[in-house]
């Protein structure tokens, strides 16, 4: 296992992934032993380039791999101390772990409010509690309240991301797995969404596991980070240290030494140089 942060060692992790292997279609080996842990109340970033295996890792945790014909063939995943490999996605949501999928996936033909309400599907605590949480979501995302009656298919990309996060919140989760929230959004919106993530973490005590290609933003808002490459964790550490790490700077933040390098150079280096190798 990779070195865990002191904070993560002090208390048992809320979520821990231990050396998992994932195979698609019975033959395509995509994750080759990934381990990570998310402490209670933490915000952990999972970084990596296209195809590194971030989405696969998140879906392995939320048990959404089956519909993609993927299987966890080795290793264990524990959520709140319970081994969770054999549970269904619905069981995970009931236990307090929800994934916000890459590309938002709002229900396009349902209104924004109906989308939010579908998030409460697994709850059994009555209408009163659910409508109170609806108001809570609207407090964090006032724009969703303005658009509550619009079909989710016709709202902007930023609003859809908010809708997808709000929908996950309606399940009253302990953990949200957030897959590429910055995808296709203008920098200002990305900043807005990440600052709401930080608030949700502090005020609502939701822990986050964030998969991101945008390492700059992710490391700014996370306390700890893991770097994935070709299905392996190649680097991990406290977010501040990762942000200072020369390799991370070079490959994910676009810096080399003091100055910015252009994209072509970065790509050129990438083929030869490996993480920590």
């Amino acid at each position: 296992m990779t070195t865990a942060s002191p904070a993560a060692e002090a208390q048992p992790a809320l979520l821990s992934v231990n050396n998992i292997e994932v195979i698609y279609d019975h033959v395509i080996l995509v994750l080759k032993g990934v381990s990570l842990s998310l402490p209670e109340g933490g915000v952990v970033a999972l970084l990596g380039a296209n195809g590194a295996g971030k989405t696969t890792t998140l879906k392995a945790i939320s048990n959404l791999l089956k519909t993609d014909r993927g299987d966890v063939t080795k290793g264990q995943i524990h959520f709140k101390g319970e081994q969770s490999n054999a549970l269904s996605a619905a069981d995970m949501v009931k236990r307090g772990l929800v994934q916000v999928m890459e590309g938002r996936h709002c229900f396009g033909h349902l209104t924004v409010e109906e989308n939010l309400l579908t998030g409460a599907y697994t709850r059994g605590d009555g209408r009163g509690a659910i409508s109170a949480d609806l108001e809570l979501v609207y407090k964090y995302f006032p724009r969703l309240k303005e658009r509550r009656g619009s079909l989710a298919g016709y709202i902007s990309g930023g609003e859809q991301q908010m809708c997808a996060i709000g929908r996950a919140l309606m399940a009253r989760p302990k953990v949200i797995l957030l897959d590429e929230p910055s995808m296709g959004l203008a920098p200002q919106l990305v900043a807005e969404i990440f600052s709401i993530v930080t608030r949700l973490n502090r005020e609502e005590k939701v822990s986050f596991l964030l998969a991101e290609q945008n390492a700059t933003v992710a490391l700014k808002h996370a306390d700890y980070g893991y770097v994935l490459e070709s299905g392996r964790v190649v680097l991990d550490g406290p977010a501040g240290q990762l942000a200072e790490n020369a390799d991370v700077k070079e490959f994910y933040l676009g810096f080399s030494g003091g100055g910015r390098v252009n994209f072509r150079d970065t790509k050129h280096y990438r083929r030869r140089k490996r993480w920590l190798a």
């Binding site: 996605a89 929800v98 996936h105 309400l117 579908t118 996950a168 399940a171």
Partner: peptide, 20 residues
């Protein structure tokens, strides 16, 4: 009924929010 419409729109997203 709402869950059913959600499933018809996007079944993996429906699973992701816990609709069986």
């Amino acid at each position: 009924g709402r869950a059913l419409r959600a499933v018809s729109d996007d079944n993996q997203a429906a699973m992701s929010v816990g609709i069986p």
